[in-house]
């Protein structure tokens, strides 16, 4: 049984410059405890796809089944309740700038109705889990990008999620920091058996983190399967192109740029 299933998702944006079809019938399924990757170049529809899962973006057509419950059929109140158990990590961290680190981690618990005192106590534990307990009283502006993302991860953990969505979570970080964040996400997945959907344009993220991958191109999944299979023997043009991008980057790095 699939833990998360997307069924024939369609989404069109009506802009001043005409309609943009972001998703044209996307389906995939994710097993419990799995880290599922979606890779594609910019404009492929990745962000729209991940936003459709927790309905930050409502698909025009199609269904999202989470543990066999149709997310698209929920009322507003039910959806809010369901979202409390789906964590999301963003490219630009999206921390509250006027709150310190500890109170940022408290936010999902406040939303869940936990008292401020209990929330603060638990928040410290989550900060310990990401190695930032010593920064509890710092403000986001005083942190590096990697530290901000770790706060965001602690904040997600505070919601006790059954599913974590990562939207280009490492794209604003340098390669070294990317490594530590990926490692942390992997650790969380192993330790708590939390299912993850990871959206990225970096092959490295898929290679180091994911079990299965789908390649998205112009709103369609053109190839999917085990990471090793797709990357070693790409069938689609899009996957081949992504590999080429990666190889070029490697060559550039090899020559010292």
């Amino acid at each position: 049984m699939a833990f998360l299933e997307a069924e024939q998702l369609f989404k069109t944006f009506h802009t001043a410059n005409g309609d943009v079809e972001a998703l044209k019938g996307v389906s995939f399924s994710v097993k419990k405890g799995q880290i599922y990757g979606v890779i594609g170049l910019s404009g492929a529809g990745k962000s729209t796809l991940v936003r459709c899962i927790n309905l930050l973006e409502r698909p025009d057509k199609g269904r999202i089944l989470l543990e066999d419950h149709d997310m698209t059929a929920l009322t507003d109140a039910e959806l809010r309740k369901e979202r409390q158990s789906i964590g999301m990590i963003f490219q630009h961290f999206n921390l509250l700038m006027q709150r310190n680190v500890l109170d940022n981690v408290c936010l999902p618990m406040e939303i869940a109705g936990i008292s401020k005192k209990d929330a603060r106590k638990k928040a410290l534990e989550y900060l310990e889990a990401v190695g930032l307990a010593n920064k509890a009283h710092a403000f986001p502006v005083q942190l590096s990008g990697g530290q901000k993302q770790r706060v965001a991860i602690a904040r997600v953990l505070a919601g006790k999620p059954k599913l974590i969505l990562c939207d280009e979570a490492t794209s604003a970080l340098d390669p070294e920091t990317t490594g530590t964040i990926l490692h942390l996400l992997q650790e969380i997945n192993k330790k708590h058996q939390i299912t993850m959907v990871v959206i990225t344009h970096e092959m490295r993220v898929i290679e180091e983190l994911c079990d299965e991958v789908a390649v998205l191109e112009s709103g369609r999944i053109v190839e999917s399967g085990l990471v090793s299979k797709v990357f070693n023997d790409p069938q689609s043009e899009a996957a081949k192109r992504l590999l080429l991008v990666r190889q070029t980057q490697d060559i550039l790095k090899g020559t010292g740029e």
Binding site: M88, N94, M97, I111
Partner: peptide
């Protein structure tokens, strides 16, 4: 106020 922060709160199920 940064749209991203609002979106983050929405993703947490905030009313």
């Amino acid at each position: 106020v940064d749209q991203g922060v609002i979106e983050a709160a929405q993703s947490m199920g905030a009313s």
